[in-house]
Design a protein around this nucleic acid. Sequence first.
RNA 1: GGUGGGGUGGCCGAGUGGCUAAUGGCAGCAGACUGUAAAUCUGCCGGGCUCUGCCCUACGUAGGUUCGAAUCCUACCCCCACCA
Length: 418
Amino acid sequence: MSSLHDILSERGLVHDATPGAAERLAAGPIAGYVGFDPTADSLHVGSLVPVMALSWLQRTGGRPIVLLGGGTGMIGDPSGKRSERPVMALEQIDANARALEQQLGRFLRFDGPNAAVMLDNARWLRDLRLMDFLRDTGRHFTVNYMLQKEAVKSRMETGISFTEFSYMLIQAFDFWQLFRTEQCELQLGGSDQWGNITAGIELIARREGRQVHGVVLPLLTTAGGAKFGKSEGGNVWLDAARTNPYEFYQFWLNTDDRDVERFLRFFTFLPLAEIRSAIERHAEDPARREGQRLLAREVTALVHGASAADAAIAASAAIFGGSADDADYAALAGTMPNSTVARAELDAAIPLADVLVRAGLASSKSDARRGIAGRGYSVNESVVSDGTRRLSANDVRQGKYILLRKGKKTYAMLVVDG
RNA sequence: GGUGGGGUGGCCGAGUGGCUAAUGGCAGCAGACUGUAAAUCUGCCGGGCUCUGCCCUACGUAGGUUCGAAUCCUACCCCCACCA
């Protein structure tokens, strides 16, 4: 079997690795960890890269450790940030950590021989005593060393608090802790984590005299230069309550041609040969977007399950196949954003603008009116141009549905209540 | 603590008494073209309304001068640089 390093590297997932990492990984399975910040109650597609890496680690016989940053979340990682982060409330951090825990459970196997482990660094960080920390950990680092780190250097102009400056030492402490208690010898992370990871390796070398390793994954950007993981509605989340399977599927389906192959390697477990032949077919007729379809189906099935993926595909076909007006609205409603309108509101002819705001298709009534004036909205697949348009019982289709659309791609189903 | 510079809309950045909801760029949304792509072009881009117009909120915070302030004055808060 190929080593984890070989697999990650042939998939383009290795941005950088510490010297000796490849050799150590070739020598046999390893325990490795990735840290996740509990800044929200769901992961988004950007975090899927390290999640995939952990899953590969497990597939090659290694023991994945998921480290939730319930302790470090109190501080805030300055890496890649231009300004100080607001401090989060403890209850919020804990609630988020629990939500992430549940979500990650879908990507890793938590039983069996090399079961994944999930830990929260709140367990050892929150009760850490300052004097102990300075004596046992702080002593091993010079300020000079810390100032060399990119995360610190880039903030010298605008300023960085001592709190954020110290962050790398805390993360180093985490790695040391996991080395001691879990025999963890590897840390994976985004390439912005390089400085923090090497600090941890340094600490373990000094305190334990042992060589451990770090592999950093590429930070994702799209060919168009845009931030990866954003769509019309903002961030693309893994939680179906935040980004439902239909939107999730659409996000991947809209992938730039130039990104398809890379994303197939990053976000699916498909063998490379299969990916290559899919890309060849794609190149023959890009307009059919076979690559995107494969990518979207695979990732949606991975994150939301096969049946949700099928439903998303069916809904997409109905909507973009040109016959959405005849489609089964109940089925569409099951896979796209819903909002409700009361029967009484329809009888009173509720303004369309109000409903668009409620459905999340407009940020305000003024925004909705401007959008309508610009012919950006449609009701049941017919474009609305009258800013004073109201919805009534006549607009209801198939008993209880009204299909709202913003632009070409953003849909919401309005369900009549009562 | 001292000296100097600075705090403008999601971000960058103009504006230094009325014509400013505030030039320009980025990001975002929509339209045209297309492949639900890319690139390009066009429109929109604080909020509300009884919408060719009207009202509210906004240029660090709080007061003040003025018919009128993002622009002038006072106090305070915060940031940056240098010095102590």
